[in-house]
Computed example of a mutant assay.
Amino acid sequence: MKTLKTAAQESQSENTSSASESAPKTRGARVDESSASPVKKPRVGFAVKFAIGLVVMVAVVLASFMIGRYQNVDAIQAIKITLSQVFPFLPIEHDWAELDASVVLSIRWPRIIIALFVGAALSCSGAAYQGVFRNPLVSPDILGISAAAGFGAAVAIVFSNPYSPIVQISAFVCAIGGVVLAYLLARVKGSIPNVMLILAGVVVAAVFNAGISMMKYLADPEEQLPAITFWLMGSLTGIRWENLAYCVPIISVSLIVLLLFSWRLNLLTMGDDEAKSMGIKASRLKTIVIVCATAMTATAVSQAGTIGWIGLVIPHMARMIAGPDHSKLIPMSAVMGGTFLLLIDDLTRVISETALPLSIPIALIGAPFFAILLRRTKQGWVE
């Protein structure tokens, strides 16, 4: 018995000693594993990303002054001309010709400003529509806005002067009227379901596209028909300060309203029932967002013609950078959309002496980029 007890005690003591020896090794191994784990890189904040976007936008604006047929103006000279015009009391040496000042102030500044505002309007309205309809394939022309504006412009070109301001006014009025018609068609028992509104937009677009075809048939094939075709392809040619008189205020006010309601739009993306449970009137909020997005889109299309892909691709790019929060998504979309359209306009002026329509390079760049974006996205659309 003593021998058995002694052997048992010895084996127990050996097990205890071996366990005690192995314990520090295990702990040490855990420490080594934790120390060997990769350190997460700190994420860049939204303020830094937005500041980088603004810097890129300013750089593109300065480069845009040097692009065009008239090559005697550089960025520094454009800044001096602008400052002498805005602040005439500054002691700036007048070392430029009158033609230089005329090109900068009357041609390139209006074109740059309208490109920034039109690009921002299309991209922000696309982000707003995608949030309201909870559909990543929604673009600003989902409610037939582009087709209705094109019909209004075609009617004005056929029955008036193609270079008259009536063309822009008619395009804007018809765009608003097309959305109102889609709203009336989609109303069911006092409510407007998203599916019905989208289908109504398809119907409205089909009707106005038929109207555009009719105007092309009635147009003069030597002057009016080329003007209609060129307008439908989108261009910033011929933009002057008069075009900015109502374009900038409408887009600015609509964009501010979208920013004010951006946090409520985040709730709307979770569904109407979720928004109502949190005290949000979904139908009223949806109407406000659609009205603002429609006003921006109608204004942009009436000035620059039909421009696709910006309202579809840019919001996805901005969402990848800023995230799904609309309080960050909308301002990032505005900066990226304006910069992108200005870059495309500069590209058209570089590769062609004539005014190349904007829709051609935008489609050639936007469609492949969107395809690559779809292939690289592994988690689907970020809601």
Rank of each mutant, 00 (worst) to 15 (best):
K5D: 13
T6S: 08
E14W: 13
S22N: 15
R27L: 13
R30Y: 07
V31Y: 08
V31N: 04
F50L: 15
G53N: 06
V55Y: 06
V58Q: 03
Y70G: 01
D74W: 02
A75H: 03
Q85A: 13
F89Q: 14
I92R: 07
I92E: 09
L99V: 15
W109N: 01
L122V: 08
G126H: 14
S139Y: 10
D141H: 03
S146K: 07
V158F: 02
N161A: 03
P165S: 05
F172G: 00
C174K: 01
A175Y: 11
I176H: 00
I176C: 06
A182M: 03
S191G: 00
I192H: 01
V195E: 09
L197A: 11
N209H: 15
N209W: 11
A210W: 11
K216V: 14
L218R: 05
D220T: 01
L225S: 00
M233N: 01
L236V: 10
T237M: 00
L244A: 04
I250M: 01
S252W: 02
S252H: 05
S254F: 08
F261S: 09
F261V: 15
R264P: 09
L267C: 05
S277A: 14
L285K: 08
V291M: 11
T294V: 06
M296A: 00
T297M: 02
P315S: 08
H316S: 11
R319L: 07
A322F: 08
S327W: 02
K328A: 08
L329D: 08
T348M: 03
S352T: 11
T354M: 12
P357M: 05
L358M: 07
S359V: 13
G366N: 07
A371W: 11
L374P: 01
T377W: 05
W381A: 06
